[in-house]
Design a protein around this nucleic acid. Structure first.
Length: 508
RNA sequence: GGCGACGUAGCCAAGUGGAUAAGGCGGGGGUCUGCAAAACCCCUAUUCACCGGUUCGAAUCCGGUCGUCGCCUCCA
């Protein structure tokens, strides 16, 4: 298994320190809703974690929540609430988004505000070793104390200086020195420290938390490419200086950034699509397929067309999984090993998910082909979702088949496939009524009326397909009870109260 | 200005030295169907931004040109 390491700028054989892979991915600063860029990063690392587990590794996965920083303070002031209220609100929002995207919870979510003692310990350690210095209530990291500063970003201190903004603070020894501890202004949330009241700087929390929960050396540290400099560069400087042991991280993994149109999607540019907005339009699986269709290190451009294509691709996989086995599972079976092997080879090569998806689609075609020619597909159908669910984290819906004990003239006992909808009993009753009416028309060869019912239901998001078992209902969207009632009314079918209860009646 | 990435079919996207350039979406034709849908089959890049070079052989390596993007400042 090979992974691309940002530090060495090449693919390396993956060999973690022990049985348990220690993995840390930079989490959120909860001051606003998460956007698709966050979704990409966390989907990517979710898949990496899943694949490591699939390959038999134990994984300890830690992700920080930086619940105190300048942006949180500003935003809380704007909204007139406390920083902890704000952080709490958007941390919940973040968890809701992760759950909705089927991103598994990590093992530990340390929060900056509850890790202050560890943060202070690390800063004090750095000051003791003269890698850092206090100044006017703040504390700064002395970048010139680290000879290899810039090794992750592949840049020298001099080249950074060329265009670096020279910050005002004259209290810094060197313009590139960065804050470990920031003295607080009056009214700001603060914690006591040896250097005075203040709060942690941006980078130190990640060092403190990763050291505390995962030890001196991590196997994998991940994040977006925009974090390489300065965030991860500074983490290396702090952590290696503090522990005295190198490397801080064996494999640095960075995902490409989501673009929207011409530019990177980012909060400062204001051109972002939130996860909640995307989920309002597209299914979780479509979003995941969209992200995984490109290699994780490449940038992707968010587009409606792309998401729609992913939605259609997803439907293809769902349909394959929900197909019936023509042999009832007893016949000669399709050999799935070549596809499984293809999938694993792709994932072993720096998590090549586009190629792995290709293997899955090849398998999908093979399954359809096999089923069409009477081979058993049951085993193959188990392998496909095993890979799609366990590794790629897709959640294909399950087909339900209503079985009626007595065959009736109508087709109520027909298969249903729920793609994205919430069919309530009220809705199902009405749809079944329409399907029955259509079946009656078909038997009477009233094709025009039968086709109209199918067309009208399709407009409402329910697709009807005539299959050997009857009429298959595919729920793409959830219509309202009212629209269905209107349709029934139009077709001359209505609810009527009778002494026996409320029943459906065809009106003449 | 410095560092880095990328430019493959209508769109998205793998492939990074060798035998027919994955896969998805879209489009066209066919089989099936009352008609559809789904599924399957066939077609949809003689060619990988452009120009030169290395090589028996290059989309893949080297040099140059053009174009796009990211980082260097808060950011996943």
């Amino acid at each position: 298994m090979k992974v691309y390491n940002t530090l060495s700028a090449q693919k390396e054989e993956f060999s973690p320190q022990g049985d348990e892979v220690k993995m840390y991915v930079c989490g959120v600063t909860p001051y606003d809703n998460c956007h698709i860029g966050h979704a990409m990063s966390y989907i990517v690392f979710d898949v990496i974690r899943r694949y490591l587990q699939f390959r038999g590794y134990k994984v300890k996965y830690v992700q920080n929540i930086t619940d105190i920083d300048d942006k949180i303070i500003d935003r809380a002031n704007q909204l007139g609430i406390t920083t902890s209220e704000l952080a709490e609100r958007y941390t919940s929002s973040y968890f809701a988004d992760m759950d909705a995207l089927n991103i598994g919870r990590v093992d530990v979510y340390p929060r900056a505000t509850v890790e202050i003692p560890k943060i202070i310990e690390v800063i004090q350690g750095l000051i003791d070793k003269e890698y850092a210095y206090p100044a006017q209530g703040s504390a700064y990291f002395r970048v010139r104390s680290v000879p290899d500063y810039g090794k992750l970003a592949h840049r020298s201190l001099e080249s950074m200086m060329a265009r670096a903004r020279i910050e005002a603070g004259a209290e810094k020894e060197h313009p590139m020195d960065f804050a470990l501890w920031k003295a607080s202004k009056p009214g700001e949330p603060s914690w006591a420290s040896p250097w005075g009241q203040g709060r942690p700087g941006w980078h130190i929390e990640c060092s403190a938390m990763s050291l505390k929960y995962l030890g001196d050396t991590l196997d994998i540290h991940g994040g977006g490419q925009d974090l390489i400099f300065p965030h991860h560069e500074n983490e290396i400087a702090q952590s290696e200086s503090f522990t005295g042991s190198k490397p801080f991280v064996k494999y640095w993994l960075h995902n490409g950034l989501v673009q929207l149109g011409e530019d990177k999607m980012s909060k400062s540019l204001g051109n972002l699509i939130t996860i909640k907005e995307a989920l309002g339009k597209y299914s979780t699986d479509a979003i995941r397929i969209f992200v995984l269709s490109s290699h994780y290190r490449s940038p992707i451009t968010y587009s409606e067309e792309g998401l729609e294509a992913a939605e259609n691709a997803r439907e293809r996989l769902v349909r394959v999984i929900s197909r019936d086995d023509p042999t009832g599972g007893a016949g000669k079976a399709l050999d799935v090993e070549p596809y499984r092997k293809q999938f694993i080879e792709a994932m072993d090569d720096d998590f090549n998910t586009p190629q792995a998806l290709g293997a899955l689609f090849d398998l999908a075609r093979a399954i359809n082909e096999a089923a069409d020619s009477g081979l058993s597909i049951l085993k193959a159908q188990n392998v496909l979702p095993e890979l799609a669910r366990n590794v790629l984290g897709l959640k294909p819906p399950i087909q339900t088949i209503e079985v009626k004990p007595v065959a009736t003239e109508t087709s109520v006992g027909s298969p249903t496939l729920i793609l994205s909808a919430n069919p309530t009993p009220e809705l199902e009753e009405r749809v079944n009524r329409l399907v029955e009416e259509r079946s009656r028309c078909r038997q009477a060869k009233q094709w025009q009326r039968a086709d109209e019912i199918r067309a009208r239901l399709a407009e409402l998001g329910i697709v009807l397909e005539d299959v050997p078992q009857g009429t298959k209902k595919i729920w793409r969207r959830t219509p309202s009870v009212e629209t269905l009632d209107n349709l029934l009314e139009e077709l001359g079918i209505a609810l009527e109260d009778t002494p026996q209860g409320t029943v459906w009646k065809r009106k003449r």
